[in-house]
Design a protein around this nucleic acid. Sequence first.
DNA 1: CTTGACATACGAATTAATTAGTACTATACA
DNA 2: TGTATAGTACTAATTAATTCGTATGTCAAG
Lengths: 127, 127
Amino acid sequence: MLAMRPRHATLTPQELEIMKLVWKRDTATVRDVYEALLERRKIAYTTVMTMMKILETKGYLKKRRQDRAFLYRPVHPKSQVIGAMIREFIDRVFNGSAEPLLVHLVKSRRLREKDLEKIVRMVEGAK
Amino acid sequence: MLAMRPRHATLTPQELEIMKLVWKRDTATVRDVYEALLERRKIAYTTVMTMMKILETKGYLKKRRQDRAFLYRPVHPKSQVIGAMIREFIDRVFNGSAEPLLVHLVKSRRLREKDLEKIVRMVEGAK
DNA sequence: CTTGACATACGAATTAATTAGTACTATACA
DNA sequence: TGTATAGTACTAATTAATTCGTATGTCAAG
C-alpha cells in the first residue's frame, strides 16, 4: 500500500533547470530566475518561488534578504552536484560501472575519437 | 494549477530494474521477475504484475499466454533503450553535449586513461 | 466434488514533482 | 495619505511513480 519512492537523491529536471540559472549568475532572486525561465516557457512567478523554496529546504540553495526580496545562492558548486547526478545515473543504469557508458557514447557516435584524445591530453596535462 | 510533468520519455528506476531482468532472460513471467526481485528486497507479487502491465502499456514489453500465465518479452533491444536514456540524460544535464560528461568522468577518476585507450582501440577496430 | 495453489483484473492508497491561485504585507509614489 | 506594485506565505490541485489488497477464475490433486 505504501509508495516509498526512494526520494530523489539528486535534482529533479525542473530543479536542475533552476539551479543551472543560479549557478550561472552566482546569486539570483526569484525574479531573476522567473524572467530567465519565461524566455523559454510559460510559468508563474509563484511556481518559481515554490521551487526555490524547495531547493532551499533540500539544501541546494541558501537565501539572505536583500532589500525586500530574498537573494539566493548555491550551497554546493555545480561540478559537485552534477557529479552526484552522474554517479546516480551510472549506478542506476550501469550498476556503477562507467565503462559501458563510454562504449555507448562512442558506438552511438556521440563522442568521436578526437574527443577522447582531447580528454587524454587533458589528463596528461593534469599529471 | 495543472501539473503536466513531461511524462518520462524513458524508463523510471523501478521499470528499468524490471526491464534489466527481462532482457537478461529474453522472456520472463511475472513470477520469474518476482522471484529475482525478492532476492534483493521485499516486494509483492502483484506489484511486479502491475509494473509489467505498465511496461506493456508503455510499449516496452509484449505478452503472450503460456499455459495459465503470461510470458513477457522485450519489444526493443536493451542497447536501444539504454541509448535513449543516455540521450535524455545528456540533454537534460549537459544541454545535449556529451563531452562535458566525459570530462567529468575523467576528472572524478571514474574513467582512467587506459579505459579511454581501450575504447579508442575499439573504435579503430570497428573502422 | 471440493479445496488449495496460482494467475489475472481491478481498485486504491501514498509520496513526490510540478504548477499556480489567493491572501497578506510593505514600500514607493502620485 | 491612499493606492498600485512587488514580494512572501500558505494552500491546493494534478499527474506520475510505486506499492499492494481483494475479488475472481481456473486447474489439478485428493
